[in-house]
């Protein structure tokens, strides 16, 4: 008896082959919906995105929430580290994939990045909408006994350690998301923002708003991290292309910005 072929298991995707080629799909189904025969032309991009992650169509409120979140996150702007990384690729003429990989690598981090969102989600999962529990968590964050690829957090997840006050885009995004009609974390965060900021010692950041939105979309921390990673890629892409056009002469090098404190001096 021949060994059974190894297979890919999926709850998301099913394909039906073309009659003349078993390696070409005639129909593709996403969580039961015919993508090219039914979804295409009827669903919005945001509805399809939600379906991919959740396996079900979003309610109108959930679709609105995800759409507002996507717009808020899609371009962090050229000063932000992940976009800056992509521009470093673009200005040097790197491949476009490399620019996006640079944005992903930097934007994965724990300061404004995707892993911070995942860590912030952990607070939501531990504390829910319990203000004293949040205070306790923020004042005495759990300490991991083991060393890890990720460094220990240097600031409360979801808050901006360099912020003077909560920035207007963060406040406006939170207000818009809290107004979507999805009852949950966002409304609570909107109501208790000042108290949480006082405990954290720094203002709420966009990553903190995104984490609350992910909670209201019922995403787990892995899904939230993934979604946040690539919702921010469009900005990285266009700024990388833009800097490719401007060229390296017009891109900051920080020519006078580096101070070497351990210079052995010019050899004699």
């Amino acid at each position: 008896m021949s060994k059974p072929q190894e297979v890919i298991h999926s709850r998301i995707w099913e394909e039906v082959p073309e009659a003349d080629n078993p390696f070409a799909a005639a129909a593709c189904y996403c969580s039961g919906y015919d993508v090219y025969g039914d979804v295409l032309g009827q669903a919005s991009w945001i509805e399809y995105l939600y379906l991919l992650f959740k396996g079900e169509r979003p309610s109108p409120g959930q679709a609105r929430l995800l759409e507002i979140l996507a717009i808020a996150l899609t371009n962090p702007g050229p000063r932000e580290a992940s976009v800056h990384a992509a521009m470093c690729g673009g200005v040097g003429g790197a491949t476009h994939a490399a620019c996006l990989m640079a944005a992903l690598a930097v934007g994965a981090g724990q300061l404004g990045g995707a892993h911070e969102v995942a860590r912030a989600l952990c607070i939501w999962q531990a504390c829910g909408q319990d203000l004293p529990a949040w205070r306790e968590y923020l004042q005495h964050p759990p300490v991991e006994e083991r060393a890890d690829i990720w460094l220990p957090m240097e600031h409360p997840p979801g808050f901006d350690p360099h912020g003077a006050s909560c920035a207007a885009p963060v406040r406006r995004t939170l207000a818009a998301l809290a107004d979507c009609g999805v009852v949950g974390a966002l409304g609570w965060l909107h109501e208790h923002r000042a108290a949480l900021e006082a405990t954290a010692g720094c203002p709420l950041a966009m990553s903190g708003v995104a984490a609350a939105a992910m909670i209201d979309l019922a995403l787990d921390s892995d899904q939230a991290e993934m979604l946040y990673l690539w919702l921010r890629l469009p900005g990285a892409a266009v700024h990388a292309l833009e800097q490719k056009g401007y060229g390296w002469r017009r891109f900051p090098f920080f020519a006078d910005g580096l101070e070497l404190v351990d210079d052995p001096g010019t050899p004699s």
Binding site: V7, I8, E14, P22
Partner: peptide
């Protein structure tokens, strides 16, 4: 295509 074993909705 048939190497994807679907067990969703």
């Amino acid at each position: 295509c048939t190497r994807i074993v679907y067990n969703g909705a």
